[in-house]
Design a protein around this nucleic acid. Sequence first.
DNA 1: TAGCGCATTGACACTAATGTCAATGTCAAG
DNA 2: CTTGACATTGACATTAGTGTCAATGCGCTA
Lengths: 144, 144
Amino acid sequence: MQIKEAATHLKLSARILRHYEQAGLLTPSRDANGYRSYSPADLRKASRIRDMIATGFSTREVLTMAPCLTDEGAGACDAGLADLKHKLAQIDRLIFDLQTRRRATLDRIESFESTLSYRSNEREDPGYDTPDHPAVSDRLSGRK
Amino acid sequence: MQIKEAATHLKLSARILRHYEQAGLLTPSRDANGYRSYSPADLRKASRIRDMIATGFSTREVLTMAPCLTDEGAGACDAGLADLKHKLAQIDRLIFDLQTRRRATLDRIESFESTLSYRSNEREDPGYDTPDHPAVSDRLSGRK
DNA sequence: TAGCGCATTGACACTAATGTCAATGTCAAG
DNA sequence: CTTGACATTGACATTAGTGTCAATGCGCTA
């Protein structure tokens, strides 16, 4: 599949796909005429990369874990057991990080929703300057 | 509280705090000498802003939901809520995906180890399912 | 064969997020 | 009063992510 079709499928620009490739994140094969050829696996990997970027990771960060983003998991299985374990640790860190963000996001959504619900019978400003939800902000500021 | 202390507390630079302010996200009061004075509420809001930025939102996006980020949470939070939920979905996708791949990697490590020496059993992971992952791939490739 | 659409590379541009530096003001302590 | 830490604003630099344009090649189809 050529770049435009791939881009359309992924809902991102061809420019971005080339950018990912230039950053070493993605390596679609080339066919005879030199055109990039995206396999379904490439598409899936690109999708993951896109998600990583959209979630605030830099291409550099994504690059360090790029092998883990392939379908096969820790890609270079032939590279040795030590490598595999190292990559596994990377994946674990990544998941931990994402879960932290996920929890923060969930908390924020919850606080939004509760705010909305008690705002529905708004009448007058309560006016307290006391911490509204200290637990949330504490947890947020303390982690990263 | 002056900017440096606030920055230290939040674990970000004073530059960033001024940047947030310039972007209209944060409006600490000023005292007589013109120095910014950060209230506890300002700190909490800054913390939320920092999390939003770190999760891939731009200051512009954050600006549209800035009112929702205050302790009082006044204003039209609906748009922000939708954005957050979208981001959460992305994160959930990634985590799910990575976890599947993590399990596959664990399995591969285990089989590698048992091939090398039938004596190694240092892992504690309960037997998961699906060493392969067609469902995941399908879901991802079909996704927006 | 001409034309159209898509591909390639490379250059330039713009914005956002940050860092850093400069020139200068404020203030507390020695 | 001088010094040192911290504040202010503003300018400039850097890096990342993207867009866009130019020059050129490939391939299908009228």
